[in-house]
Protein backbone atom coordinates (compact mmCIF):
# COMPACT_ATOMS: atom_id res chain seq x y z
CA UNK A 1 0.00 0.00 0.00
CA UNK A 2 2.69 2.43 1.05
CA UNK A 3 4.78 1.63 -2.01
CA UNK A 4 1.84 2.22 -4.23
CA UNK A 5 1.25 5.60 -2.70
CA UNK A 6 4.90 6.47 -3.18
CA UNK A 7 4.69 5.59 -6.82
CA UNK A 8 1.57 7.63 -7.37
CA UNK A 9 3.12 10.59 -5.64
CA UNK A 10 6.19 10.30 -7.84
CA UNK A 11 4.09 10.09 -10.94
CA UNK A 12 2.03 13.05 -9.88
CA UNK A 13 5.17 15.07 -9.24
CA UNK A 14 6.51 14.22 -12.69
CA UNK A 15 3.30 15.23 -14.35
CA UNK A 16 3.33 18.49 -12.48
CA UNK A 17 6.95 19.17 -13.40
CA UNK A 18 6.21 18.49 -17.05
CA UNK A 19 3.20 20.76 -16.85
CA UNK A 20 5.37 23.49 -15.33
CA UNK A 21 7.64 23.64 -18.34
CA UNK A 22 4.68 24.54 -20.48
CA UNK A 23 2.83 26.77 -18.06
CA UNK A 24 2.74 30.45 -18.49
CA UNK A 25 4.78 32.80 -16.28
CA UNK A 26 4.46 32.80 -13.29
CA UNK A 27 4.08 29.17 -12.30
CA UNK A 28 6.03 29.34 -9.03
CA UNK A 29 6.47 31.92 -6.29
CA UNK A 30 8.34 35.10 -7.20
CA UNK A 31 10.89 36.30 -4.65
CA UNK A 32 11.12 40.01 -3.91
CA UNK A 33 14.49 40.80 -2.39
CA UNK A 34 14.17 43.76 -0.05
CA UNK A 35 17.53 45.27 0.84
CA UNK A 36 16.34 46.49 4.23
CA UNK A 37 15.00 45.11 7.48
CA UNK A 38 11.35 44.23 7.79
CA UNK A 39 9.34 47.24 8.88
CA UNK A 40 11.43 49.92 7.15
CA UNK A 41 10.04 52.24 4.48
CA UNK A 42 11.22 50.12 1.55
CA UNK A 43 10.00 46.92 3.15
CA UNK A 44 6.57 48.42 3.83
CA UNK A 45 6.35 49.52 0.20
CA UNK A 46 7.20 46.01 -1.02
CA UNK A 47 4.76 44.32 1.31
CA UNK A 48 1.97 46.78 0.55
CA UNK A 49 2.46 46.49 -3.19
CA UNK A 50 2.92 42.70 -3.29
CA UNK A 51 -0.78 41.65 -3.14
CA UNK A 52 -1.65 44.17 -5.87
CA UNK A 53 1.14 42.96 -8.13
CA UNK A 54 -0.05 39.39 -7.55
CA UNK A 55 -3.55 40.41 -8.57
CA UNK A 56 -2.41 41.99 -11.84
CA UNK A 57 0.12 39.29 -12.75
CA UNK A 58 -2.83 36.92 -12.50
CA UNK A 59 -2.68 33.12 -12.88
CA UNK A 60 -2.35 32.61 -9.12
CA UNK A 61 0.94 34.48 -8.92
CA UNK A 62 2.45 34.64 -5.46
CA UNK A 63 5.14 37.04 -4.28
CA UNK A 64 7.38 36.24 -1.35
CA UNK A 65 9.31 38.98 0.39
CA UNK A 66 12.87 38.10 1.39
CA UNK A 67 14.72 40.63 3.52
CA UNK A 68 18.41 40.85 2.76
CA UNK A 69 19.35 43.88 4.85
CA UNK A 70 22.69 45.57 5.12
CA UNK A 71 24.87 48.33 3.75
CA UNK A 72 21.93 50.65 2.93
CA UNK A 73 20.37 48.10 0.60
CA UNK A 74 23.64 47.32 -1.20
CA UNK A 75 23.71 43.65 -0.25
CA UNK A 76 20.16 43.06 -1.43
CA UNK A 77 20.45 44.91 -4.70
CA UNK A 78 23.74 43.20 -5.53
CA UNK A 79 22.01 39.87 -4.99
CA UNK A 80 19.27 40.93 -7.41
CA UNK A 81 21.81 41.98 -10.03
CA UNK A 82 23.52 38.60 -9.81
CA UNK A 83 20.42 36.39 -9.78
CA UNK A 84 18.96 34.46 -12.71
CA UNK A 85 16.98 36.69 -15.08
CA UNK A 86 13.90 34.49 -15.34
CA UNK A 87 11.48 36.85 -13.58
CA UNK A 88 11.31 34.76 -10.43
CA UNK A 89 13.63 37.11 -8.60
CA UNK A 90 12.94 40.80 -8.45
CA UNK A 91 14.09 43.35 -5.91
CA UNK A 92 13.47 46.75 -4.44
CA UNK A 93 15.53 49.64 -5.69
CA UNK A 94 16.23 53.06 -4.21
CA UNK A 95 17.18 56.25 -5.97
CA UNK A 96 19.44 58.12 -5.86
CA UNK A 97 21.22 55.82 -3.39
CA UNK A 98 21.77 52.80 -5.64
CA UNK A 99 23.28 54.92 -8.42
CA UNK A 100 25.30 57.12 -6.06
CA UNK A 101 26.94 53.99 -4.65
CA UNK A 102 28.28 53.11 -8.09
CA UNK A 103 30.28 56.34 -7.88
CA UNK A 104 31.55 56.45 -4.31
CA UNK A 105 32.53 52.80 -3.98
CA UNK A 106 33.20 49.73 -6.07
CA UNK A 107 29.66 48.44 -6.34
CA UNK A 108 28.95 44.93 -7.56
CA UNK A 109 26.60 46.25 -10.26
CA UNK A 110 26.10 49.14 -12.69
CA UNK A 111 23.08 50.91 -14.18
CA UNK A 112 23.07 48.21 -16.89
CA UNK A 113 22.70 45.35 -14.45
CA UNK A 114 18.94 45.74 -14.14
CA UNK A 115 15.66 45.59 -16.01
CA UNK A 116 13.78 48.60 -14.72
CA UNK A 117 10.23 47.53 -13.87
CA UNK A 118 8.66 50.47 -12.07
CA UNK A 119 9.34 53.25 -9.64
CA UNK A 120 6.48 53.31 -7.15
CA UNK A 121 7.24 55.86 -4.45
CA UNK A 122 8.65 59.36 -4.67
CA UNK A 123 9.03 60.93 -1.26
CA UNK A 124 9.88 64.55 -2.17
CA UNK A 125 12.49 66.54 -0.27
CA UNK A 126 11.52 69.46 1.88
CA UNK A 127 13.62 72.27 3.26
CA UNK A 128 12.91 72.91 6.90
CA UNK A 129 14.34 75.28 9.49
CA UNK A 130 14.34 75.23 13.27
CA UNK A 131 11.96 77.57 15.07
CA UNK A 132 14.96 78.96 16.94
CA UNK A 133 16.68 80.08 13.72
CA UNK A 134 13.96 82.61 12.89
CA UNK A 135 14.39 81.77 9.20
CA UNK A 136 10.75 81.14 8.41
CA UNK A 137 10.75 81.89 4.67
CA UNK A 138 12.99 80.84 1.77
CA UNK A 139 13.82 84.52 1.19
CA UNK A 140 15.16 84.97 4.70
CA UNK A 141 17.06 81.69 4.47
CA UNK A 142 18.77 82.60 1.22
CA UNK A 143 19.52 86.12 2.43
CA UNK A 144 21.14 84.69 5.55
CA UNK A 145 23.16 82.19 3.50
CA UNK A 146 24.37 84.99 1.24
CA UNK A 147 25.26 87.30 4.13
CA UNK A 148 27.73 84.80 5.53
CA UNK A 149 28.53 81.83 3.27
CA UNK A 150 28.67 78.60 5.24
CA UNK A 151 27.10 80.06 8.40
CA UNK A 152 23.96 78.01 8.01
CA UNK A 153 24.29 74.46 9.29
CA UNK A 154 22.20 71.91 7.41
CA UNK A 155 21.19 68.65 9.05
CA UNK A 156 20.49 65.74 6.71
CA UNK A 157 20.40 61.97 6.80
CA UNK A 158 23.64 61.21 4.93
CA UNK A 159 26.06 62.36 2.25
CA UNK A 160 25.46 61.14 -1.28
CA UNK A 161 21.70 60.86 -0.86
CA UNK A 162 18.72 62.76 -2.21
CA UNK A 163 18.96 65.44 0.50
CA UNK A 164 22.61 66.09 -0.29
CA UNK A 165 21.88 66.39 -4.00
CA UNK A 166 19.03 68.80 -3.32
CA UNK A 167 21.31 71.02 -1.25
CA UNK A 168 23.90 71.03 -4.03
CA UNK A 169 21.21 72.05 -6.49
CA UNK A 170 19.95 74.76 -4.16
CA UNK A 171 23.45 76.10 -3.74
CA UNK A 172 23.94 76.22 -7.49
CA UNK A 173 20.57 77.81 -8.32
CA UNK A 174 20.71 80.47 -5.61
CA UNK A 175 24.52 80.86 -5.48
CA UNK A 176 24.76 80.16 -1.78
CA UNK A 177 26.98 78.01 0.47
CA UNK A 178 26.10 75.87 3.46
CA UNK A 179 27.77 73.74 6.12
CA UNK A 180 26.58 70.14 5.80
CA UNK A 181 25.99 68.14 8.97
CA UNK A 182 25.27 64.56 7.92
CA UNK A 183 23.53 62.66 10.72
CA UNK A 184 23.03 58.90 10.67
CA UNK A 185 19.50 58.76 9.33
CA UNK A 186 16.77 61.32 9.24
CA UNK A 187 15.33 60.79 12.75
CA UNK A 188 18.35 62.16 14.60
CA UNK A 189 18.62 64.97 12.05
CA UNK A 190 15.03 65.95 12.75
CA UNK A 191 15.56 65.78 16.52
CA UNK A 192 18.61 68.04 16.27
CA UNK A 193 16.57 70.45 14.19
CA UNK A 194 13.76 70.52 16.73
CA UNK A 195 16.27 71.20 19.48
CA UNK A 196 17.77 74.03 17.43
CA UNK A 197 21.22 72.41 17.22
CA UNK A 198 21.26 72.92 13.45
CA UNK A 199 19.56 75.82 11.69
CA UNK A 200 18.25 74.12 8.60
CA UNK A 201 17.47 70.62 7.50
CA UNK A 202 16.66 68.70 4.35
CA UNK A 203 14.29 65.83 4.91
CA UNK A 204 11.45 64.08 3.09
CA UNK A 205 7.84 65.10 3.27
CA UNK A 206 6.66 61.91 4.95
CA UNK A 207 9.12 62.55 7.76
CA UNK A 208 7.95 66.07 8.57
CA UNK A 209 4.22 66.05 7.73
CA UNK A 210 3.33 65.49 11.39
CA UNK A 211 5.85 67.96 12.77
CA UNK A 212 4.76 71.19 11.17
CA UNK A 213 4.02 72.75 14.55
CA UNK A 214 7.59 72.21 15.73
CA UNK A 215 9.67 73.11 12.69
CA UNK A 216 9.20 75.52 9.78
CA UNK A 217 8.59 73.67 6.53
CA UNK A 218 9.65 76.17 3.85
CA UNK A 219 8.96 74.31 0.64
CA UNK A 220 8.58 70.99 -1.10
CA UNK A 221 10.65 69.87 -4.11
CA UNK A 222 7.87 68.68 -6.43
CA UNK A 223 6.06 70.07 -9.44
CA UNK A 224 2.71 69.96 -7.63
CA UNK A 225 1.99 70.39 -3.92
CA UNK A 226 2.10 67.16 -1.96
CA UNK A 227 -1.10 65.70 -0.59
CA UNK A 228 0.74 64.98 2.66
CA UNK A 229 1.16 68.70 3.39
CA UNK A 230 -1.11 70.65 1.01
CA UNK A 231 -0.37 73.98 2.67
CA UNK A 232 3.37 73.78 2.01
CA UNK A 233 4.24 75.63 -1.22
CA UNK A 234 6.51 74.11 -3.86
CA UNK A 235 9.86 75.73 -4.62
CA UNK A 236 8.56 76.35 -8.14
CA UNK A 237 5.91 78.65 -6.64
CA UNK A 238 8.65 80.52 -4.80
CA UNK A 239 10.66 81.05 -7.97
CA UNK A 240 13.34 78.42 -7.35
CA UNK A 241 13.59 75.48 -9.76
CA UNK A 242 14.10 72.49 -7.49
CA UNK A 243 12.73 68.97 -7.79
CA UNK A 244 14.13 66.05 -5.86
CA UNK A 245 13.09 63.16 -3.71
CA UNK A 246 13.82 59.74 -2.37
CA UNK A 247 12.51 57.13 -4.80
CA UNK A 248 11.73 53.49 -4.30
CA UNK A 249 10.70 50.96 -6.89
CA UNK A 250 11.24 47.48 -8.29
CA UNK A 251 13.91 46.10 -10.60
CA UNK A 252 14.79 42.68 -11.97
CA UNK A 253 18.15 41.45 -13.20
CA UNK A 254 19.01 42.61 -16.74
CA UNK A 255 18.07 40.31 -19.62
CA UNK A 256 14.56 39.25 -18.61
CA UNK A 257 12.71 37.21 -21.27
CA UNK A 258 10.71 39.85 -23.23
CA UNK A 259 7.32 38.26 -22.50
CA UNK A 260 8.04 38.16 -18.77
CA UNK A 261 9.15 41.78 -18.73
CA UNK A 262 6.05 42.76 -20.68
CA UNK A 263 3.89 40.99 -18.15
CA UNK A 264 5.45 42.88 -15.24
CA UNK A 265 5.17 46.21 -17.07
CA UNK A 266 1.52 45.54 -17.77
CA UNK A 267 0.90 44.71 -14.10
CA UNK A 268 2.62 47.85 -12.87
CA UNK A 269 0.73 49.94 -15.43
CA UNK A 270 -2.51 48.67 -13.95
CA UNK A 271 -1.25 49.45 -10.47
CA UNK A 272 -1.10 53.14 -11.37
CA UNK A 273 -4.86 53.43 -11.63
CA UNK A 274 -5.75 51.21 -8.67
CA UNK A 275 -7.54 53.31 -6.03
CA UNK A 276 -7.19 50.67 -3.30
CA UNK A 277 -3.45 50.59 -3.90
CA UNK A 278 -3.22 54.39 -3.65
CA UNK A 279 -5.18 54.28 -0.38
CA UNK A 280 -3.01 51.51 1.05
CA UNK A 281 0.15 53.43 0.20
CA UNK A 282 -1.19 56.70 1.61
CA UNK A 283 -2.02 54.88 4.85
CA UNK A 284 1.65 53.94 5.20
CA UNK A 285 2.92 57.48 4.43
CA UNK A 286 4.27 56.50 1.02
CA UNK A 287 3.68 59.20 -1.61
CA UNK A 288 3.05 57.26 -4.83
CA UNK A 289 4.52 58.31 -8.17
CA UNK A 290 4.52 55.46 -10.66
CA UNK A 291 7.03 55.49 -13.48
CA UNK A 292 6.93 52.24 -15.39
CA UNK A 293 9.49 50.57 -17.69
CA UNK A 294 11.24 52.96 -20.04
CA UNK A 295 10.18 55.99 -17.98
CA UNK A 296 11.82 54.46 -14.90
CA UNK A 297 14.95 53.69 -16.90
CA UNK A 298 15.12 57.29 -18.07
CA UNK A 299 14.61 58.52 -14.50
CA UNK A 300 17.47 56.29 -13.38
CA UNK A 301 19.79 57.61 -16.09
CA UNK A 302 18.87 61.18 -15.22
CA UNK A 303 19.58 60.58 -11.52
CA UNK A 304 22.92 58.98 -12.34
CA UNK A 305 23.90 62.03 -14.41
CA UNK A 306 22.99 64.37 -11.56
CA UNK A 307 24.91 62.24 -9.07
CA UNK A 308 27.91 62.28 -11.43
CA UNK A 309 27.95 66.07 -11.65
CA UNK A 310 27.73 66.43 -7.89
CA UNK A 311 30.42 63.79 -7.44
CA UNK A 312 32.75 65.51 -9.89
CA UNK A 313 32.34 69.01 -8.45
CA UNK A 314 32.18 68.09 -4.75
CA UNK A 315 32.96 64.44 -3.97
CA UNK A 316 31.61 63.41 -0.58
CA UNK A 317 34.27 60.95 0.39
Amino acid sequence: MFKYMQKTALAAAMVMAAGAAWAEFPDKPITIIVGFDAGGGTDVMARTAAPFIEKYLGAGASLVVKNVPGASGQIGVTEVANSVADGYTIGTYNLPGMMARTLDREAGYTADSFSYLANVVNDPNVIVTSKASGLDTMEKLIAAAKAEPGAITVGMSSLGGDDHFLLTKLGKVTETEYTIVPFKGSAPARTALMGGHVAMGILNISEVADFQDQINVLGVATAKRSEFAPDVPTFEEQGIALESGSMRGFVAPAGLPPEVEAKFIEAFDKLASDKDFAAAMAATSNPVELKVGADFKALNAETLDLAKTVWETSPWN
Binding site: G70, A71, S72, Q74, L159, G160, P182, K184, N317
Partner: peptide, 20 residues
Protein backbone atom coordinates in the same frame (compact mmCIF):
# COMPACT_ATOMS: atom_id res chain seq x y z
CA UNK B 1 32.04 49.65 9.08
CA UNK B 2 31.38 52.74 7.09
CA UNK B 3 32.58 56.09 8.38
CA UNK B 4 29.63 57.84 10.03
CA UNK B 5 30.14 61.09 8.12
CA UNK B 6 31.73 60.31 4.78
CA UNK B 7 30.78 56.68 4.37
CA UNK B 8 34.30 55.41 3.57
CA UNK B 9 34.90 51.76 4.37
CA UNK B 10 36.90 51.14 7.52
CA UNK B 11 38.31 47.69 8.32
CA UNK B 12 35.69 45.99 6.17
CA UNK B 13 38.23 44.16 3.96
CA UNK B 14 35.74 44.33 1.13
CA UNK B 15 32.99 42.46 2.98
CA UNK B 16 29.65 44.15 2.44
CA UNK B 17 28.45 42.36 5.58
CA UNK B 18 30.75 44.56 7.65
CA UNK B 19 29.67 47.82 6.05
CA UNK B 20 26.97 48.52 8.63
Amino acid sequence: GSDPIFGNDRYTFGYLELLD
